[in-house]
Design a protein around this nucleic acid. Structure first.
Lengths: 147, 147
DNA sequence: TATTGACCTAAAGTTAGGTTTAGGGTTTAT
DNA sequence: ATAAACCCTAAACCTAACTTTAGGTCAATA
């Protein structure tokens, strides 16, 4: 079973020109052709699935390519591939951490503007923030400004 | 108390040229100058802090600017600012979700290459993956390919 | 007094990750 | 047999977010 570029495009919701761009950049090596037309195998689908997954964790295309090339090279790169994923896992855990911290600030701001909306103005909040801010939010804000 | 661009650069670990770029783009309105030299107030520091926070959640500069402009406009934009943060919070929660899902795949790959390293090859795993894959990982993998 | 170190601007250059355009080739329904 | 719906390439174009370059001001230090 093989798929055309249009089928792959729909399945992964990636534009056709993006798939061709990935191919050109060497992220999809050894795709078969019939009369010049790409025929994607299950293995190619798998590759695209992994590319998508790595993109979601913000891996650059050149690093994705590095991994693809390691797969192509065979068993001698198993150790390197293991390290690649270990590293990527750590980076992703860190990204989650950063987002969670930033989220606290967003939540604080949501609280702040909800209060401001009630009061009809930010002035009272600005001048008298201590009496308005709930304790947890005070702690958060101080923390944020200590770094 | 005011700070020079060099001090701000060190404090936030943003390059001087990036700060000037933000200023040029209108993200830092109304910075005072003495003989043409920028003097950052506590309020400006606060603004940069928020810019940094929003950047961490991948907000585009043009949207950060939109928020900065709303602050400048005053109380008439409180509602809009509240919505801005509500929306941003949702987006950030979603980003965390996406990362967590991708993380599962990374963990699976770590397991896979750890196993391959033990076996000295991926061949056995490829041919006989069902007997090697732990149950949880099977489920995860099937899920990932169903979409 | 000369040089070092911080600051300034305007404008050009860079990089990643695409997208668009122009021109052209098959296959398939009407 | 012709138009619609696919597919192809090469090359130009685009955007965001910086960075670099070139040329200049000013204050303090050796």
């Amino acid at each position: 079973m093989t798929y055309t570029i249009g089928e792959i495009s729909k399945r992964f919701n990636i534009s056709i020109s993006t798939i061709r761009y990935y191919d050109k950049e060497g992220l999809l090596p050894d795709i078969k052709r019939e009369n010049g037309i790409r025929k994607f195998s299950e293995q190619d689908v798998e590759t695209i699935f992994i590319i998508e997954c790595l993109k979601k964790t913000n891996v650059e295309l050149k690093d994705i390519k590095r991994f693809i090339m390691m797969v192509k090279q065979g068993d001698s790169t198993i150790d390197e591939r293991l390290n690649f994923f270990k590293e990527q896992k750590e980076k992703t855990l860190n990204q989650i951490k950063v987002l969670k911290k930033a989220l606290q600030m967003l939540e604080y701001k949501e609280w702040y503007y909800t209060k401001a909306k009630e009061l009809g103005s930010t002035i009272e909040l600005e001048n008298n923030i201590d009496s308005y801010r709930p304790k947890e939010i005070k702690e958060l804000y101080e923390l944020a400004h200590k770094q």
